[in-house]
């Protein structure tokens, strides 16, 4: 295995393009090293992105959103008060990934690129409307986060493509987001179901909403029908009941060692309701 420490994304792309075998980009390493250890993936070339200027930064965008570098750890996100104030759901989702120790290394970008349908931060990013900047042999482009994962362990990134930053939109007034997952223990598990809700209020009425579900389909999914079920409502009991139904019918889970399809479908509804209520309360300023 060859270990590279490029000083720019362009250099990283060049190294990847000239590499013949298996290539992996390294940021936090909390997935790459586990795969390496298990013998599942032993890259021929490992390209460490942490020496590239700016990758450790969380910066406000001119539009009022946030640009998050690819090597920013979950712990650093959690310590960023302004970001947490704007996007508590995104931050709490990332903070649910792994242990305190894993938080010291794991990154949003890594969580996304791992391609797991159960990745905790991804539903929150999708609900938030986050976008990624991609650089590769074909140049640079932007994508919505929900376009990145294409199946378990698979992404829309081509060979040599790499994400250079994640951008969160401006929070705006009357907004609130939240993420929760269901796991058997209190910590340290992979989500059996995850749900993120991001909404905007005018008065008591929801004017915009995005709802995303994790671990109930081959990829994290944006569920527009779920958003429609609560838009133009005050999240009253009828709206919540409709949301639960829609979330359950949108779920297309499998049964595996972490839960049965029936259970996941059930929980998708429970979580959608609980998370919507939390996001709503946050939007109303009733909760942190």
């Amino acid at each position: 295995m060859h270990y590279h420490t490029p000083a720019s994304f362009e250099e990283a792309v060049r190294i990847a393009a000239s590499a013949g075998g298996v290539t992996r980009f390294l940021a936090g390493g909390t997935d790459v090293l586990v795969q390496l250890r298990a013998g599942a993936v032993t890259p021929d070339d490992l390209i460490d992105l942490k020496h590239i200027p700016g990758v450790h930064d969380i910066a406000a965008t001119p539009q009022g959103g946030w640009r998050i570098g690819v090597a920013v750890s979950g712990a650093e996100l959690g310590e960023h008060a302004a970001l947490k104030r704007d996007w508590p759901g995104v931050v709490e989702a990332m903070e649910l990934v792994g242990s305190t120790q894993v938080q010291g290394r794991a990154t949003l970008t890594g969580n996304l690129c791992n391609g797991s349908p159960a990745a905790d931060s991804v539903p929150a990013l999708v609900a938030a409307g986050a976008r990624v900047a991609v650089t590769g042999p074909q140049g640079s482009r932007e994508m919505a986060v929900e376009q990145v994962p294409t199946g378990p362990g698979k992404t829309a990134l081509g060979p040599g493509d790499l994400i250079t930053a994640i951008t969160l939109p401006p929070r705006g007034a009357g907004g609130g987001d939240a993420y929760q997952r269901f796991i058997p223990r209190t910590e340290m598990d992979i989500a059996v179901v995850g749900c993120a809700v991001n909404l905007t209020l005018e008065g008591d009425v929801i004017t915009q909403a995005r709802v995303a579900l994790g671990a109930v389909a081959p990829t994290v999914m944006l569920v527009p029908e779920a958003a429609e079920a609560i838009i133009s409502t005050t999240l009253d009991s009828d709206a919540l009941e409709a949301l639960v139904k829609v979330a359950r019918s949108a779920a297309r889970p499998i049964s595996d060692k972490r839960g049965t399809a029936e259970f996941r479908t059930d929980i998708a509804g429970v979580l959608a309701r609980r998370v919507a209520e939390l996001a709503y309360a946050r939007a109303k300023g009733r909760a942190k």
């Binding site: 058997p184 223990r185 209190t186 910590e187 340290m188 598990d189 992979i190 595996d256 060692k257 972490r258």
Partner: peptide, 28 residues
Amino acid sequence: LNEAYIYGEDGRLQNAGFLDYRIPVACD
């Protein structure tokens, strides 16, 4: 509550790690 050996149809152990062989953690 949560610990168990989970074998697949193929007879292989599916949870050979502390991630899915779920022993209690401090906050449990």
